[in-house]
Design a binder for these strands. Structure first.
Lengths: 218, 218
DNA sequence: AATATAGTGTGTATTTTTTACACTATTAAA
DNA sequence: TTTAATAGTGTAAAAAATACACACTATATT
């Protein structure tokens, strides 16, 4: 009589100027050998978000990540053994923090790999739809979401921030106008620090003032 | 091994200048005698949206209504017999079309009644949270959603439209600025018809040009 | 030392959008 | 015919968004 269902976790990051999604190659029926979004069954006594955190930890080695619920999908035919409802979440992670940790710790997945979001094969179940929902939500909420900063290191350059906006919106933005607007928002703190290790003029670093950000959207 | 879950359907309408929500008084354990959002179990072979339509039909007598999925809620303790996942939907209906039909056809509910959304008692389960999610979604998506027109008759006055915006946003708007902006959007068709049955100057009626609307948000 | 490369950093003019604000017109009922 | 209720309308100022071009800095390569 209890609910029996799965969670799927769309894990996105930003690297090499584009949004990337972490996919795993399934090693289990159904859709064996297909690429899929990480996901698994929720334990009977486990809160749904805990399950998502567990699954994303197993795949990225990260705890305490940014999560948003996307949707519940429950098509009668989505699983060959009969309807299995899934609740899809989206997680945003910083590439620098995960790049050496990514590997599926479970044995029901063969390998994990980052794919550019525009370069994703046909996925198991309705996982292409979940990706579509995640990208749409990112885009729709961009102007009042903390999401862009979840994809960046604590200290970042305005060019990095602009690249994230551009890849979420799918269009290029004017540099001067972008900086003017970001400045006007008032929640970016200009630091007296600069990029290191670049072979060109080092850019100034910025931080988000989380208090001011939170106050704006309270 | 199949998923077993419920759907809940937040049914909203607009009447007497305010948003109203349809609540039913439960006649069944748990939360017997509490007010609740209409909802019930999804049949094994039934698509989730079909279940929502069935439930909203049982409560409003209407078919073909506007539906949006809000969220899945699955707290381990939300049901005393153990975790029951629910998928919450929001339905928008026209008061004129439902006012004489509203009554719960099922026997697990005692009565159905419209409540102003700011005048809702403590509800069964996590239903106050579902209401909150629905109102937030309405507000967030207002500027690119067809929702306002789902609450109005096919032909409506600009004052009616403004009242809907005002109650969704929770603030009052300037009449001239509102009309200017609506005019600029370009999807309202001015008709050569006027209100009837009012004891003051009759207002002009308008329609939405659905094609133009769809084109704008494609 | 010269050159190529790549990304940083800045200002202004134009257009568009938003905001603030008050009176006249129409109708039905008293 | 007066009253009450709501419909309907324009303009100016401010703010925000957009379009647009060039010089600067650091490094790597030859």
């Amino acid at each position: 009589m209890l609910s029996f269902f799965t969670v799927d976790c769309l894990i996105l990051t930003f690297h090499e100027g584009q949004l990337k999604v972490l996919l795993t190659e399934r090693n289990e029926y159904p859709y064996k050998d297909w690429w899929a979004i990480p996901g698994y069954f929720v334990d009977k006594e486990e809160e749904m978000e805990e399950a998502v955190k567990r699954i994303s930890y197993e795949n990225t080695g990260l705890k305490d990540i940014y999560l948003e619920q996307l949707a519940a999908l429950a098509g009668v035919k989505r699983h060959p053994e009969g309807r299995i409802l899934t609740v899809a979440y989206m997680a945003l992670v910083r590439y620098e923090e995960v790049k050496n940790k990514v590997k599926p710790i479970t044995n029901y997945m063969r390998q994990a790999k980052w794919f550019g979001v525009n370069d994703v094969p046909e996925l198991a179940f309705d996982h292409n739809e979940i990706l579509r929902l995640g990208l749409k939500k990112l885009k729709t909420n961009l102007s009042f979401s903390f999401a862009p900063f979840e994809l960046l290191p604590e200290k970042f350059t305005l060019t990095q921030l602009q690249q994230i906006y551009e890849s979420i919106l799918g269009e290029s933005l004017d540099k001067r106008n972008f900086r003017k607007k970001m400045g006007n928002l008032g929640y970016l703190k200009e630091l007296d620090e600069y990029q290191t290790g670049v072979s060109y003029r080092a850019a100034r670093l910025y931080k988000v003032d989380k208090r001011k950000f939170a106050k704006l959207f309270a």
